[in-house]
Deep mutational scan, measured.
Amino acid sequence: MEVRTIKVFTTVDNINLHTQVVDMSMTYGQQFGPTYLDGADVTKIKPHNSHEGKTFYVLPNDDTLRVEAFEYYHTTDPSFLGRYMSALNHTKKWKYPQVNGLTSIKWADNNCYLATALLTLQQIELKFNPPALQDAYYRARAGEAANFCALILAYCNKTVGELGDVRETMSYLFQHANLDSCKRVLNVVCKTCGQQQTTLKGVEAVMYMGTLSYEQFKKGVQIPCTCGKQATKYLVQQESPFVMMSAPPAQYELKHGTFTCASEYTGNYQCGHYKHITSKETLYCIDGALLTKSSEYKGPITDVFYKENSYTTTIK
């Protein structure tokens, strides 16, 4: 009895394709271990004539594949690729409408935090270190965002349907971005203890939790000093293409032309909904596939993004 075979390709990165001759009487799992086709788990399936010449994702289970996976995804987590594939199996079914010149995501599976993050990423200057993220990001900007969303979920250790947080998501993504040249110098002034300067680099240099107003941050924000008295913390120097200011959701007025974009969060910790506000020729609110415009805006804002380049204080 002759062994019926077909020729397929296996890959971990969709760049390096490895030619395989597979036995049609055995499952993919018996031949390769966990195997995925377009995100779908085909591990328990036997090869079919229609699979001839198709590319299958496999887990990096030998040295060659491990090197290829690390170079593309910059992670050695053995569960990463499987999590990416199972997320992709959902995100490829989502709709990605162009809204006001940006790629958004039609609401499904509690994905409003991903839509808000995706919209924000198209408006701030950011370059990702893992080629996987950078490639998928370019495709997302062009309207094909399924891979990018699935990668975000995998890097953030999230599953489809789980509630997510924009600030946490951005923080994970910033860790995989090139923020080497970003720098922030802060000064804390206390009447009792004097003053202390701190220099922050990388992710810490672009994120701040405690106030939404970048102007206020430049002037000074009140913080408790270690001595128990009130101290003032203010920005001395900022070198970065953008800054992200966050605070627990509270009524906040966004003035046209003073910011790049913002995240609105309605609801409580267990259950809520994100919308995205962007400042173009007027203010726009993007909620999944829905767009509304207004000249002014007041609502429960939790993150505001500002364009920056270089700032030095005039406070002496």
Rank of each mutant, 00 (worst) to 15 (best):
D41R: 03
E204C: 04
V166W: 03
V188G: 01
T302E: 05
K233R: 13
T192R: 12
F259C: 03
N61A: 12
E68N: 15
L102E: 02
Y36K: 02
Q251P: 09
M244T: 06
Q216F: 04
K233S: 12
L290S: 13
K54M: 07
Y297P: 04
L118H: 00
Q31C: 12
Y113C: 03
H256Y: 02
T312C: 10
H48D: 13
K280V: 07
P249Y: 00
D303T: 10
D287N: 09
K298D: 03
A145T: 02
K191R: 14
S50C: 08
N16S: 13
L290D: 14
T43A: 13
K201Y: 10
G82V: 11
L119S: 02
K316M: 12
Y172C: 07
G161I: 01
G194D: 06
T198C: 10
M24Y: 11
T260C: 14
Y297V: 06
V3R: 12
T19G: 15
A108F: 05
I6R: 05
Y57H: 15
S246G: 02
C182F: 07
R83Q: 00
T302Q: 10
A250T: 13
N187L: 11
T19M: 06
F242E: 15
L153A: 06
Q237K: 09
P47K: 00
E68P: 06
G299M: 06
M26N: 15
R141K: 11
K183G: 08
E68M: 08
Q134G: 07
F242W: 11
K92N: 09
T76A: 14
L173K: 01
D41C: 09
L163P: 13
K201L: 08
D135Q: 13
T192V: 09
P249R: 07
V21Q: 06
L102P: 01
I6G: 04
Y306I: 05
I286G: 03
P47V: 07
A250S: 15
G210A: 05
A40W: 11
H276A: 05
G228V: 03
Y137Q: 07
C190G: 02
T75R: 07
A145F: 02
E162V: 02
Y84V: 04
N157T: 08
S181R: 12
Y265R: 07
C156I: 14
I301Q: 03
G164P: 02
V166Y: 12
L121R: 02
V185Q: 08
F148N: 01
H18K: 14
G143E: 00
E296T: 14
G143Q: 01
C227H: 02
K158M: 02
E296I: 14
L283I: 11
T314H: 11
V160Y: 01
M85Q: 07
L37F: 12
P47D: 00
V188M: 09
T313N: 08
Y155L: 01
Q195P: 11
E52C: 10
F305P: 02
L81F: 10
C156D: 01
C112W: 06
L212T: 13
L163F: 14
S213Q: 05
P47Y: 02
L114T: 02
F259I: 07
C225M: 02
T292L: 08
A289F: 06
R4M: 14
T75Y: 04
L173H: 01
M245F: 07
A117M: 12
S240T: 02
Q230E: 12
K233Q: 08
S294L: 13
H176I: 04
Q31M: 09
T198F: 11
H74S: 12
Q98R: 13
R184G: 09
I277D: 00
M244R: 06
R83Y: 00
I45Q: 12
H273C: 00
Y214I: 14
V189C: 15
E281C: 02
R4C: 11
V3W: 11
V243L: 08
A132E: 01
L102C: 06
G164K: 06
Y72I: 04
F242R: 05
N61E: 12
T282C: 14
Q175I: 00
Y84R: 03
I223G: 10
G164L: 04
D62A: 08
D23F: 09
F80E: 01
K95S: 13
M209Q: 13
L119V: 15
A250W: 03
D63S: 05
A145N: 03
Q195F: 09
T169F: 03
V22P: 09
K46R: 11
L119K: 04
M26D: 11
N49G: 15
K316H: 11
E296K: 14
N89D: 10
Y138R: 14
E2C: 09
L126Q: 01
A132T: 01
H256S: 09
T282Q: 11
L153M: 03
Q196S: 14
G53M: 14
N49I: 11
S295T: 11
A69G: 05
K95G: 07
D135S: 10
K191H: 09
T198W: 11
N178L: 09
M245P: 09
Q230L: 14
Q122M: 04
K127F: 09
D180L: 07
K44P: 12
P60N: 15
Q175C: 06
A145V: 02
C190L: 02
F9W: 09
V304S: 04
K219C: 15
L65V: 08
D23W: 06
N61K: 12
D62Q: 10
L37P: 01
N110P: 00
Y96E: 01
W94A: 00
Y113H: 05
L254N: 07
Y137A: 06
A250V: 08
H18D: 07
G299P: 06
S86L: 12
